[in-house]
């Protein structure tokens, strides 16, 4: 029982999600969308119709939150925040990553063992690392750290060596995480309630009208019977 669970939580995928604010918030919101309506439906303090209504509203709200999050955070906050950080910390020797996705791909690969990096599953991450993307501190291409260079007889670096030599570029990674946290807070605490006011209320009113129409039809049928 413990073995598979530990294998799951220590897998590379789970570790990447745990270190990534964006993925964590998406996962949390999805779980809320399932968990909260379920518990609302199980609540015995209120009558069935009210529970149904509240659960539907809760589910729609969480889905809306997820939608707002997916639409705004990666495009605006993650990339925008990263670009801003690149400008603020331009003297700190950060490589000229094109965008947040490229930086996160590099970080994801650097976190793996050299053998894992060659796995075809990870090719999509490797393809994002341009060969002319260099570390400004020593002029070495970042691709060389990850995959080595057979012509120059350079071996790929392990995760530990990269950490020790400061090649994980924590400042760049941290700036992405910080802007994602700020974006999540703004998106979920200010934008979502305001937008839900314009979208959720009409939808819930329409659902309510439909259900009351149905109830009226049932009543009419009962009377006839």
């Amino acid at each position: 029982m413990l073995g598979p669970l530990v294998n799951m939580i220590t897998s590379n995928k789970f570790q990447t999600i745990a270190q990534n604010t964006d993925a964590c918030v998406k996962l949390e919101t999805s779980l809320k969308a399932v968990g909260r309506p379920t518990f609302t439906l199980m609540d015995k303090h209120t009558d069935k119709e009210t529970r149904k209504y509240a659960a539907t509203k809760e589910f729609l709200y969480q889905i809306l939150c997820l939608g707002i999050y997916l639409a705004i955070i990666p495009a605006v906050f993650k990339n925008g925040g990263f670009k801003l950080a690149q400008r603020i910390f331009k003297k700190e020797g950060m490589p000229a990553f094109k965008n947040a996705k490229q930086m996160l791909s590099y970080h994801h690969l650097a976190y793996m063992s050299p053998a894992e990096r060659c796995n075809p599953k990870n090719k999509k991450f490797l393809d994002l690392i341009d060969k002319d993307l260099i570390n400004p501190n020593d002029g070495t291409p970042l691709y060389e750290y990850l995959m080595g260079n057979k012509e120059k007889h350079i071996e790929p670096l392990s995760k530990k060596t990269m950490e020790n030599k400061g090649l994980m570029f924590e400042l760049a990674k941290g700036s992405i995480e910080l802007s994602s946290i700020i974006g999540s807070v703004i998106g979920l605490t200010i934008l979502a309630p305001e937008i839900s006011h314009y979208i959720l209320h009409p939808v819930m009113k329409a659902i309510d009208k439909k259900s009351s129409l149905k109830a009226r039809n049932v009543n009419a049928f009962d009377k006839k019977a």
Partner: peptide
């Protein structure tokens, strides 16, 4: 930023 980059807790 550096501390978040080194260890970002969910």
């Amino acid at each position: 930023c550096v501390s978040l980059g080194k260890h970002n807790d969910a």
